[in-house]
Every structure is written in C-alpha cells, then in structure tokens.
C-alpha cells in the first residue's frame, strides 16, 4: 500500500478542498501519521474486507471502486478523481472496506490516519461536528448517485 519511506506531511487548508476552513490545531493533528502516496495503475488502495484505517484525499489520478463476487464478473461501480475524498468506513461498524479500490491512472493521494483523526475529533467535539458536516454531504452525494444508478436512467 505504501511506497517505502514516509515523507513528512504538513497539511494546510489548501492541500485539499476537504480541509478548507479547518483550524491549525486540527491540521497539525491530522498531519500526524498522514502519508502522501503515489500509486501506479493496478495498485490497490484498499481491498474489501480489510480493516479501514484511512481517509483518502485524492489529489490526482483516478481510482475505481469495484465489487466482485465469485459468480459475477468484477464491476466498477464508481470512479473517484481529484478533489474528491474516499473512505469513511473507519467510522461505521464493522470498520472494514465494503469494496475494492483499484488505481486506474497514476494517482497521488493523501492517506490520513483514522486513529489519529478519531482521537482528535473525540477530544474536540466542535471540530468533530465540523468534520462530520464536511463528510456527510460527500456520503449524501454518493447516495444520490447510487440512487440515480439504481433507477437505471438509460434503461430501455
């Protein structure tokens, strides 16, 4: 998952749209244990069933969310690109990834450590609230898109 040595990351609110408006204390805390990853095509960001330990901030590239079942060909359900975020399963029991995330195009992504985030947000409920206010629209948008997919609007 990671590429050798961890470079030190100093997050700012300009690093990614998701971080806009957060205070320096949070950004400093989130920088702790954060990793900048450069992933080649076909690399797996995560596998379904694995323990979810990161929130991914997409900087560049494209990642496919895929579902595979033994009796079914692998299906891409969505692709995630720059400025989007990926991965909230560490907030939701059973804290495992429900899908595979596979790199399609050379991808740069920042992986925030979920344990670090959780500790900070628990200790600072006001920031925790702001964080969830930022995350829930992402989840809601995914849900909307899944609903539109479900309707099969192009269906004949």
């Amino acid at each position: 998952m990671t590429n050798g040595e961890k470079p030190v990351i100093r997050l700012t609110s300009a690093t990614h749209p998701f971080l806009e408006g957060f205070d320096a204390e949070f950004l400093a805390a989130a920088s702790e244990g954060a990793e900048a990853l450069e992933l080649p095509p076909e690399a797996m960001v995560f596998h379904s069933g694995e323990r979810a330990r990161h929130l991914y901030l997409m900087l560049e590239g494209k990642v496919a969310l895929e579902i595979e079942a033994p009796d079914h060909p692998r299906i891409t359900i969505q692709t995630i690109g720059p400025r989007e975020v990926l991965g909230w399963s560490w907030l939701v029991p059973p804290y495992t990834w429900p899908v595979d995330a596979r790199v399609l195009k050379p991808t740069r992504v920042i992986a925030l450590d979920a344990g670090v985030l959780e500790r900070h947000l628990e200790a600072h409920p006001d920031v925790g609230y702001r964080f969830l206010r930022r995350l829930i629209p992402v989840i809601a948008k995914r849900l909307d898109e899944a609903r539109i997919q479900l309707v099969d609007i192009h269906g004949t």
Partner: peptide
C-alpha cells in the same frame, strides 16, 4: 465520458453524469 457501470476493460470514468458536473 462516464458510464453508469463497467467491467475492468474500461479505464474511463464510472458514475452517473451528474457526478461529472462539479468537474
């Protein structure tokens, strides 16, 4: 170009058209 779903042979975007609009 985006498609609602695809198999592994597709390297383009997957997702409904509205997902591409913010971009």
């Amino acid at each position: 170009v985006t498609v609602d779903s695809a198999d592994r042979s597709w390297y383009g975007d997957v997702g409904v058209v509205t997902q591409r609009l913010p971009d």
